[in-house]
């Protein structure tokens, strides 16, 4: 009967030993304590994962600052040089020689970044982008005479970067002369901190090409621009920013004057070989472009822009507001009289 009622009556159980019990108990307690520490320890304790306000887990942006790329001024050296007549290379050399020659600005072993304006995928003749011949001649000059270690060319265009660099002829020019093109991608931007800037104190900046760079040269075309009247040397730095640039137009003059303090370039070169007189900054028709015969090089972008506005774009009305603002922010002096040396 019994065996029928309890079929496993003869079953022998295997109890865990005291030793095992204690071991398991200690392990469980240790794990609970560790978990408890991580979860409950105050935020400033080491290894604490606690986040009372929810702010600890927010992504942190670590802004960086750009160094000053200018070289010290020297007595008797003009601020701005203008080269006229001859091929692009000759003009460029004349302009640079007027301000002390390239070797005054570039030392052997420098890593130089050139920032052309490659904003649109247009053929060079439409004047919407920097003349590739200048880029080619400049890179050669930097590598051969300036004995720079490396020359980089970077821009963040409005249209597809690959196509803009290809169609504007800048990529070919750069590669032929021995430079290297840096294209922007989504990982290439970091937040730049610009002390004193009113609107872009912290803004995503195309940082990758700036690694180890110690000289920066902006090479900008001279273009008409509806909203801020003209896009020249200062406005060119727009192309190093990322993020929502389309908000800039809500206060464009302030932005452009901010750009003038965002970066302090070694040199600014204005490409006055093709002037986009109207329909800027995109252009699109050869009739918008006026051929000219000027290349400017200098260390005061404010004065250069003022001169180019009056003499290349031939605007006699008042200067763009951003130049006055830039002057206020200390990026240069508008009054260019007596600071220009022209080599014809």
């Amino acid at each position: 009967m019994g065996s029928k009622k309890y079929p496993h009556a003869d079953y022998q159980k295997e109890p865990i030993s005291r030793r095992e019990f204690i071991k398991q108990g200690v392990a469980v307690a240790a794990m609970s304590a560790a978990a408890g520490y991580l979860m409950l320890a105050p935020e400033n304790y080491p290894l604490s994962l606690r986040d009372v306000t929810g702010l600890r887990s927010q992504p942190k942006e670590k802004p960086f600052q750009l160094p000053d790329f200018r070289v010290p001024k020297e007595a008797g050296v003009f601020d701005i040089g203008i080269g006229r007549n001859g091929s692009v290379g000759v003009k460029l050399r004349k302009a640079l020689d007027a301000i002390g020659g390239i070797t005054r600005y570039i030392k052997p072993g420098d890593v130089v970044l050139i920032k052309p304006n490659v904003a649109f995928d247009r053929p060079p003749m439409l004047g919407a982008t920097t003349n590739p011949e200048i880029i080619e001649e400049l890179i050669r000059l930097l590598l051969v005479e300036g004995r720079a270690r490396e020359v980089r060319v970077a821009d963040n265009p409005i249209e597809s970067p690959v196509d803009c660099f290809a169609k504007s002829g800048i990529r070919l020019a750069t590669e032929r002369a021995g430079g290297k093109v840096y294209l922007p991608d989504s990982n290439a931007f970091e937040i730049l901190y610009t002390p004193g800037a009113t609107l872009i104190e912290q803004w995503p900046f195309f940082k990758r090409p700036f690694q180890n760079v110690n000289k920066v040269i902006g090479v900008a075309p001279v273009k008409d621009h509806n909203l801020c009247y003209a896009s020249m040397g200062i406005k060119n730095w727009y192309g190093l920013l990322g993020g929502r640039r389309n908000q800039f137009h809500q206060n464009i003059h302030e932005i452009v004057s901010d750009l003038s303090i965002m970066i302090k370039p070694t040199l600014t070169i204005l490409d006055g070989t093709r002037i986009l007189m109207k329909n800027g900054p995109t252009g699109g028709d050869p009739s918008d472009v006026k051929p000219a015969d000027v290349i400017m090089a200098g260390v005061d972008p404010v004065a250069m822009d003022a001169w180019a506005f009056e003499n290349l774009l031939e605007r006699k009305e008042k200067l763009p507001e951003y130049l006055y603002k830039a002057e206020q922010k200390g990026s240069g002096k508008i009054d260019f009289r007596g600071r220009i040396k022209e080599v014809v």
Binding site: P123, M125, L126, K167, D285, P286, S287, D288
Partner: peptide, 14 residues
């Protein structure tokens, strides 16, 4: 894949 200067000038119409 691109426009030649001749083509641009041919249809330039200010």
């Amino acid at each position: 894949r691109t426009l030649s200067p001749e083509q641009l000038l041919q249809s330039s119409h200010p």
